[in-house]
Simulated scan of single mutants.
Amino acid sequence: MWNSLRTDAPAGLLAGVTSYRAGNGDLVHAYVARPEGPGPYPGVVLAHHLPGWDELYREFARRFADHGYIAICPDLYCRAGHGDPDDVAAAVRAAGGASDDLAVADLVAARDWLRALPTANGKVGVFGTCSGGRHALLAASKAGGFDAVADLWGGGVVAAPDALTPQQPVSVLDYTAGLDAPLLGLFGDQDQFPTPELVDRHEEELKRHGKEYEFHRYAGAGHGFFYYHRAAYRPESAMDGWAKVFTFFGRHLSTGS
């Protein structure tokens, strides 16, 4: 699916920050990127990672728009204030992390916002990396109602009892029975959060409940292997991973699929 554009096709995008009614009715910022034209287009909700609502996730949103999706990336840390993404994320970490209940509510509200657009085809996936992968899977499992979910190396999906907190009171694994969408998982075999053993445990639970999923594991890759601005970047694994994301979402979010 990579570099599959037509050179004579229109390639206009519309992108920018908007606000929408999220969890608890709060007005939350979101970055939205969409193709020009009447559509209809599938949608994808992006759950950003722990470094925050940053430039990388805006680029991710535009990449999805380039591939024919309406993408919305809510600022899950919006209630913590504004400033440099690293500083805001540090404040969220110091407060014990984002509330699972609010993160799920924000992602569900973003999904519904997408579905209501006149250019939408009605199908919406959810995508996230790192803590965002965990939040994406949590929303799809706890709330349901998404058409596909992509969890990229989501840390903490399998959580020991002593790792639970008031903000994150339940292991996402415990919600596996409620997952009602096909799941794509991408993982590095050198990752320590989650380790390959934790990915194995997650896969066993998915099999036990008869869930539709596909996991892909990358030798020589660790946590964050998509992140071109870090030493963890693995170009070949990242390119293959992006191709798998677009193939997976294309299969499950296209009209009539």
Rank of each mutant, 00 (worst) to 15 (best):
D66R: 14
E214D: 14
A94N: 05
V126N: 07
C130M: 10
N121C: 02
G37H: 05
G128H: 05
Y233F: 15
D240K: 11
D26R: 15
A109F: 00
Y227A: 15
P235F: 03
A61L: 01
L198N: 06
G125A: 10
G224W: 07
R93L: 02
G96T: 02
G125F: 11
E59W: 00
D106A: 08
R134Y: 13
W53L: 11
H29K: 07
V45E: 09
V104S: 09
D191G: 09
R6H: 09
Y57L: 14
T247M: 05
P166R: 10
W242S: 05
N121Q: 03
R134H: 04
D162H: 12
H49Q: 13
P51C: 09
Y20H: 02
P38W: 00
C73G: 04
G155I: 04
A95G: 12
L152I: 15
D66Q: 15
A9G: 08
G155F: 08
G155P: 03
P161A: 14
Y228D: 15
P196G: 10
V199W: 10
K123L: 14
G250C: 09
D87M: 07
P196D: 03
L102G: 00
G52H: 10
D26V: 02
F64A: 04
A103E: 11
D200N: 10
L179R: 05
V126L: 01
E236G: 12
L76K: 08
H29E: 12
A90K: 14
F193G: 13
C78T: 01
V88R: 09
Q168W: 11
W53V: 08
D151Q: 06
P166T: 10
K244V: 00
G222D: 06
A221G: 02
F246K: 11
S254M: 03
A243R: 15
T165H: 04
V170E: 13
T247W: 13
T165I: 01
R6E: 10
V44P: 07
G122D: 07
G132F: 13
L76P: 01
G133T: 09
G224Y: 01
A98E: 04
F246L: 13
T7D: 13
F226H: 15
F127A: 00
L14I: 10
H67M: 12
L27Y: 00
D191M: 09
Q167G: 08
H29A: 15
I72Q: 01
L198A: 15
L184T: 06
G128F: 11
A120L: 01
G68C: 09
V108M: 09
E59K: 10
D191F: 09
A89V: 03
A9W: 07
A47I: 06
E36M: 13
L117I: 08
